[in-house]
Design a protein around this nucleic acid. Structure first.
Lengths: 182, 182
DNA sequence: GTCTATAGAGCGATAGAC
DNA sequence: GTCTATCGCTCTATAGAC
C-alpha cells in the first residue's frame, strides 16, 4: 500500500502538469488530494518542498535491462516518452522550473546526471567487448556519446511538448541513425 | 530610438529570466521598467500579454548568412547560445512555460517552426548542388536532418540550463559529428 | 501617456480542536 | 494525523487626477 506522502506527491504532480508549478495553488493541490490543508502541511514544509518531491519522477522505466544493447535501451526510453504524454509534458515543465527554483534544479541535475551515467555505462559495457579503443579514446568517445543521447532525449521532450505538428517518426529515424553509429 | 513598448518588454524579460514568468510579479516588472502600473497597463492588456511579448525573442542571430554552409550556420547558433547564458536560460524557462500557457505556446511553436524552416532551407540549398538525391529522398533526408538540428539546439539549451557540470566541449564535438554527415 | 492610490480576490501558511 | 477556520499578505488590475 502506498504511503500517504507518496499519495500527496502524486496528487500534486497531476495538478502541476496541468497548470504549471507556480500557477497551481496549494488549494488546487489540496482539492486534488481529497484531504485538507492541515494534512498536507503535516507531511511537507511548504509549497517548494512538495514541488521538489513532485519533480523527482520515477526513473525505473529509464534503466537498462540485462542483455539490452545500448541503442535498444535508449530507443526504449524514447518509446516510453512517446507513449506517456503526461510525463513528457511534466518533464518539460520541470526543466523550465529548474532554471529559477534551486530546489527543483537540484532534483533535475541529479536525475539527468543519473540518466547520463546509465547511458554511458551501457555503451561502455558494449564497447569493451565489441570495439577496440584505447582507454583514453574510449572515455572521450563515451563523453561525446553521452552528450548525443541526452540531446536525443531532452530534444524529444522539448519538441514534443512545444511544436504543434511535431513529427515523431522523423525524430525516431534521426535518433536511430545517431545511436547506432558506434 | 526604441519604442516605449519595446523598452517595457525588455524590462519584463530581464525580470522573467531571473524569477520565472509566474514568480515575477507585475510590481517587479514595474520596478524594473522605471515606470508605473498605469504606464504598463496602457501598453499591455495584462500580465499574459506582456509574457507572450517577452517570449518573442530576437531571432536575427539565428539566420543563415549568404554563402554560409549549413553546419557552419548551426554551429554559429550554438556558439551564440554558449556565449549568451541569459538567452539560453530564458529559452529554457519559456519552453517550460509554453506547456501550460497557450499564449506562450503559440510564440514558441512559431519560433521553433521558423528555426526549423531556416535550417531545412539551408541544407536544401546545399544538397541541391552537392548531393544526388531524388526529390522524394531529398525531402525525407531534410525531415530527418531538421529533427537532428533542432535536437542539437534544444538539447543544448536544456542541458546547459539544468546540468551543473555540463561539458560544452563534448557537446560541440558531438554536434559537429552529427551536422557534417550528409 | 503616466502618475498614485487602492480595490477585490486569492495566496501560502498556521492555530487549535478532535 | 487530519480537520476547519482564518490570519496577514501579495497579487493583478483599475480609477481618476494630471
Amino acid at each position: 500500500m502506498r504511503s500517504r506522502r507518496a499519495e500527496l506527491v502524486e496528487a500534486a504532480r497531476s495538478v502541476f502538469v496541468q497548470k504549471g508549478y507556480q500557477q497551481a495553488s496549494m488549494n488546487d493541490v489540496i482539492a486534488a488530494s481529497g484531504l485538507s490543508a492541515g494534512a498536507i502541511y503535516n507531511h511537507f514544509s511548504g509549497k517548494t518542498d512538495i514541488m521538489s518531491a513532485a519533480a523527482r519522477v520515477d526513473l525505473s522505466p529509464f534503466e537498462a535491462r540485462k542483455d539490452e544493447l545500448p541503442w535498444e535501451f535508449v530507443e526504449r526510453c524514447l518509446v516510453t516518452l512517446r507513449h506517456n504524454v503526461q510525463l513528457t509534458r511534466f518533464l518539460a515543465i520541470t526543466w523550465g522550473e529548474a532554471v529559477t527554483v534551486p530546489e527543483v534544479a537540484e532534483v533535475v541535475n541529479e536525475q539527468l546526471s543519473l540518466l547520463r551515467l546509465r547511458v554511458v555505462a551501457s555503451y561502455r559495457a558494449w564497447a569493451e567487448t565489441e570495439l577496440d579503443f584505447s582507454p583514453a579514446e574510449l572515455e572521450s568517445w563515451l563523453q561525446v556519446l553521452g552528450s548525443a543521447v541526452l540531446s536525443v532525449l531532452t530534444g524529444f521532450v522539448v519538441q514534443a511538448s512545444t511544436i504543434q505538428d511535431f513529427d515523431a517518426d522523423s525524430y525516431f529515424e534521426f535518433a536511430r541513425t545517431i545511436l547506432r553509429q558506434a
